[in-house]
Design a protein around this nucleic acid. Structure first.
Length: 597
RNA sequence: GCCGGUGUAGCUCAGUGGCAGAGCAGCUGAUUCGUAAUCAGCAGGUCGUGGGUUCAAGUCCCACCGCCGGCUCCA
């Protein structure tokens, strides 16, 4: 975990408060202009900090009452005035002691607190018009440089990021080099809102949440189809690669969690139940129990590697304010697996996992980026083993010919790891897959061993890995990525048959039955509604293929096939539709191919 | 957990102390229809929950719960 925005901003060592590139500089300057506008409109507020962040900027203010939407409009209008005046940003330097007096007399306690924490003899201030702020820069030459910006929202934020500190009022804004860039960003925000999986999940009957179980989804029949297709794909891939699926208890005696260390380190995130004077916990992770499966037999070096996969349902207590649809839940299904191997097998095993990551993600059109995290300061376990494992991870990535970034010292205390990050169609990043080597947690705590060729007991290495991460979050991401228009193999309903009128209802039923017998998820919509109405509904439900059948089609043994979001349609023999759909589903195609020449 | 917002029919929302509403969805009937909404009728409510103020509470006050945007958290 790197330093937070606050940490970076408050440190005041080095020479800049933001990356000296044009865009971060512009955003940083925008935050100063916003602070000036706020001070002019609300002279009593105290200034905290205001850095550039991804996509924009914020500034924190101490103010008894929160800012309202109307306040934001006034602030934005005042910012435009300041920009129109084209005030130059002027840098001044001052001895630290003088700066403390300066901000003291201006009634800015947070600035004084920051200055008191610095050891620099001299600090810099930036001034535009009557506004002065403690700041290392850089800034744009003058306020007139800021053209494309917008204030977005305000919310509470703790001073210095600690919940023990007073809560400040934070205003977020976004700023770009051109109006076109700003418009694109605002469009993306709008589009994200439209694609919100909580909304689509309800509209498409995939899943819902109820207040009887905060943070746990009710999977509806159509959502469960997607869940099952993901499982099917997962099992197909893993069965073919020597994984053995297991399933372990969800409710487990506290003794296990004491043994694994979760009782000491993770208890506050666990749901506990007391029965017959014994305490049980809902499992927050699968790993401890996986080691029980390992220990079920005495293992030989010839048995290794052992690859145990488990689609385990986990519960983690997340604080109420942190839940967010499928993205942050209390109950989820992890596509977990634990590989137990000898140190000399590490590289081959990691290579295999990366191959699976590429295969699974590639099927959804995601291109994963990989990050290798190496030994942290507080690491446990044998140094030579660390060295060997880091080399194995590196070689595995090279062997799969994937570029990767190294995050020095970011590994877990029990071993190095590889994380994979994907970007969705709106450019948002998601960290999903993780591959972690483990020399300590499972092998040491559970005293795992195998009998080596020399007859001696040896300790295996464990690899924890998940690809989707959790089915819940992954389906949430897919829903937004595809805007509900899932590829045919995932689509809850793959085709819908619409007889034009009752006169062709019988033929419509026969077409429906042929598709159903062909293993296609098909629905017959022979309701007493006009064709246009039923077409519209199929489109809104994002059904990939709509098959219209009328007198012509019933004579010729064809259907009139219309693809999702296309207006053209064409007649096709029923057999060709079944074949085409089967091929498309079997190949897990990302595009609609049936009826294309 | 903290700050703020919010909660009225399955969904989207109106209703600022005086008879709980609309559109869509649902049901019934008519219409038998060729590629994004046919017409008519009917039914649908613990106004999140619990207290309080008031002659009277969806509306005002308090507490709790859920949700939304952030913060914090995510060994």
């Amino acid at each position: 975990m790197g330093p937070s925005e606050e940490d970076r901003h408050l440190r005041f060592e080095g020479d800049a408060d933001c990356e000296p590139a044009p865009l971060p500089t512009l955003r940083h300057s925008s935050s100063h202009v916003m602070a000036q506008a706020v001070k002019e409109l609300f002279p009593d507020v105290k200034l905290a900090i205001g850095p550039a962040i991804e996509d924009g900027f914020y500034y924190d203010f101490a103010k008894p009452e929160p800012f309202t939407a109307e306040d934001l409009e006034r602030i934005e209008a005042r910012m435009r005035e300041i920009i129109r005046k084209d005030l130059p940003f002027v840098r001044e330097e001052m001895p630290r002691e003088a700066a403390i007096r300066f901000f003291g007399t201006r009634g800015e306690p947070f600035k004084v607190e920051i200055l008191n924490g610095l050891d620099a003899p001299t600090v810099s201030l930036y001034r535009q018009g009557d506004f002065v702020d403690l700041c290392r820069g850089p800034h744009v030459p003058s306020t007139g440089q800021i053209k494309a910006f917008k204030l977005l929202s305000c919310s509470g934020a703790y001073w210095r990021g600690s919940e023990k500190n007073p809560m400040l009022q934070r205003i977020y804004g976004t700023a770009w080099l051109s109006q076109a860039d700003l418009d694109r960003h605002l469009w993306r925000l709008e589009e994200a809102k439209k694609r919100d999986h909580r909304k689509l999940g309800r509209e498409l009957d995939l899943f819902v949440f109820h207040d009887v179980s905060p943070g746990a989804a009710f999977w509806l029949p159509k959502g469960m189809v997607i869940f099952r297709e993901l499982e099917r794909f997962y099992r197909e891939v893993h069965d073919a690669r020597g994984y053995q699926e297991i399933s372990t208890p969800i409710l487990v005696n506290k003794r296990l969690w004491e043994e694994s260390g979760h009782w000491e380190h993770y208890q506050e995130n666990m749901f506990l139940v007391e029965v017959e004077e014994q305490v049980f916990g809902l499992k927050p992770m699968n790993c401890p129990e996986s080691s029980y499966v390992y220990r079920h037999h005495l293992r030989s070096y010839r048995d290794l590697p052992l690859r145990f996969s488990e689609l385990g349902r986990l519960h983690r207590f997340e604080r109420s304010g942190t839940l967010a649809g499928m993205f942050r839940v209390r109950q989820f299904t992890q596509d977990d697996a634990h590989i137990y191997c000898r140190p000399d097998q590490l590289q081959a095993e990691i290579t295999g996992v990366i191959e699976i990551v590429q295969l699974l993600y590639g099927t959804f059109g995601f291109e994963p980026r990989f990050f290798l995290s190496t030994r942290p300061a507080k690491a446990m376990g044998d140094a030579a083993l660390w060295e060997q494992a880091e080399t194995a991870l590196r070689e595995a990535l090279q062997k799969r010919d994937v570029p990767f970034e190294v995050r020095v010292g970011e590994g877990a205390f029990y071993g190095p790891k590889i994380d994979a990050v994907i970007s969705d169609v709106l450019g948002r990043d998601w960290q999903l897959a993780t591959v972690q080597c483990d020399f300590v947690m499972l092998p040491e705590r559970f005293r795992l061993d195998y009998v080596d060729a020399d007859g001696q007991g040896k300790r295996p290495v464990a690899i924890h890995r998940a690809i989707y991460g959790s089915f819940e979050r992954f389906v949430g991401i897919l829903t937004e990525h595809f805007a509900g228009a899932f590829p045919t193999w995932l689509a809850p309903v793959q085709a819908r048959v619409l007889p034009v009128s009752e006169k062709t209802a019988a033929y419509g039923r026969s077409v429906f039955e042929r598709l159903r017998d062909g293993g296609i998820r098909v629905e017959l919509d022979d309701r007493n509604e006009k064709l246009g109405y039923r077409i519209r509904e199929a489109q809104l439900q994002k059904v990939p293929y709509t098959l219209v059948v009328g007198a012509r089609e019933s004579q010729e043994g064809t259907v009139n096939l219309r693809r999702r979001n296309e207006e053209d349609s064409a007649a096709l023999p029923v057999a060709a539709v079944v074949d085409g759909l089967t091929r498309e589903v079997t190949s897990r195609s990302l595009t609609l191919t049936v009826g294309r020449s």
